[in-house]
Computed example of a mutant assay.
Amino acid sequence: MSEIYYTLLFLYKGNKRVRPVYPEYAEDYVFFSKDPFIGDRKKAQESLAKLKSYPEIARQLKDMPEYMRTGFYRSKVRLAHELANLTNRNVVTETGSNLEHNPNSIISLIAEFGEDLDKESRLRLVSPYLFMAKYYDSEGNVVTDNVSDIHRWLAEHPGGRLEVITNSVLTSDNFFAQSIIDMELGPRLLLSAELKKAWLSGLQSGEMEQTLTNSDEWKKQINNPQIFIYQTGKLDAQLLGHGNAHYGKLHAKFIVDGNGGFVGTSNFDYRSRLFNNEMGVFYENRKVGAILDSFFESLKATSYRWGTPEWLQMRKEVMQVRGLKGWSTRNQRVIYKFMRATGLDWLI
Results as ranks from 00 to 15, higher is better:
residue 12 Y to V: 13
residue 177 A to P: 11
residue 134 K to M: 09
residue 194 E to L: 05
residue 127 S to C: 08
residue 216 D to K: 14
residue 64 M to L: 13
residue 314 M to W: 06
residue 331 N to E: 13
residue 90 N to W: 05
residue 171 T to A: 06
residue 58 A to H: 12
residue 14 G to V: 02
residue 9 L to P: 00
residue 168 S to K: 11
residue 223 N to L: 02
residue 198 A to V: 04
residue 87 T to P: 04
residue 136 Y to L: 11
residue 217 E to R: 12
residue 259 N to A: 09
residue 227 I to W: 03
residue 38 I to M: 12
residue 172 S to D: 05
residue 186 G to E: 04
residue 93 T to I: 12
residue 149 D to Q: 11
residue 157 H to I: 04
residue 48 L to W: 11
residue 124 R to K: 15
residue 209 E to T: 07
residue 219 K to T: 08
residue 348 I to T: 14
residue 251 H to K: 14
residue 153 W to M: 10
residue 61 L to Y: 02
residue 346 W to P: 02
residue 276 N to K: 11
residue 92 V to T: 13
residue 252 A to C: 09
residue 339 M to S: 06
residue 147 V to N: 05
residue 155 A to F: 12
residue 59 R to M: 08
residue 319 M to C: 11
residue 283 Y to E: 01
residue 330 R to M: 09
residue 15 N to L: 12
residue 298 S to I: 01
residue 167 N to T: 15
residue 184 E to W: 08
residue 120 E to G: 08
residue 188 R to T: 04
residue 305 R to L: 02
residue 314 M to L: 14
residue 225 P to H: 07
residue 147 V to Q: 11
residue 62 K to L: 13
residue 240 L to Q: 04
residue 87 T to D: 09
residue 321 V to G: 04
residue 289 G to Y: 00
residue 255 I to E: 03
residue 213 T to M: 03
residue 65 P to C: 01
residue 348 I to P: 01
residue 80 A to K: 13
residue 218 W to A: 08
residue 142 V to G: 01
residue 18 V to A: 15
residue 45 Q to D: 14
residue 337 K to H: 15
residue 59 R to D: 08
residue 156 E to P: 02
residue 343 G to E: 03
residue 183 M to G: 13
residue 298 S to C: 06
residue 24 E to H: 13
residue 138 S to F: 08
residue 97 S to D: 08
residue 70 T to W: 00
residue 308 T to A: 06
residue 140 G to K: 12
residue 198 A to E: 12
residue 272 S to T: 01
residue 173 D to W: 09
residue 76 K to H: 15
residue 72 F to N: 14
residue 175 F to I: 05
residue 300 K to T: 02
residue 124 R to M: 08
residue 290 A to C: 00
residue 71 G to V: 00
residue 255 I to A: 03
residue 292 L to P: 04
residue 295 F to N: 15
residue 46 E to N: 15
residue 19 R to C: 05
residue 212 L to E: 01
residue 59 R to W: 04
residue 49 A to K: 14
residue 37 F to Y: 14
residue 318 V to A: 02
residue 114 G to F: 02
residue 112 E to T: 07
residue 288 V to T: 06
residue 229 I to Y: 04
residue 120 E to I: 07
residue 335 I to N: 14
residue 267 N to I: 07
residue 24 E to G: 10
residue 265 T to W: 00
residue 102 N to L: 06
residue 254 F to Q: 06
residue 47 S to F: 11
residue 301 A to F: 01
residue 87 T to N: 12
residue 236 D to R: 13
residue 158 P to A: 05
residue 243 G to F: 03
residue 102 N to A: 07
residue 75 S to C: 07
residue 326 G to M: 07
residue 194 E to N: 10
residue 197 K to N: 15
residue 198 A to C: 05
residue 304 Y to P: 00
residue 169 V to D: 11
residue 239 L to V: 15
residue 320 Q to N: 10
residue 258 G to P: 01
residue 324 L to K: 15
residue 36 P to Q: 06
residue 293 D to F: 06
residue 308 T to S: 14
residue 289 G to F: 00
residue 347 L to P: 04
residue 149 D to G: 06
residue 50 K to E: 13
residue 159 G to M: 03
residue 169 V to R: 13
residue 200 L to H: 10
residue 189 L to F: 01
residue 207 E to Q: 13
residue 54 Y to N: 14
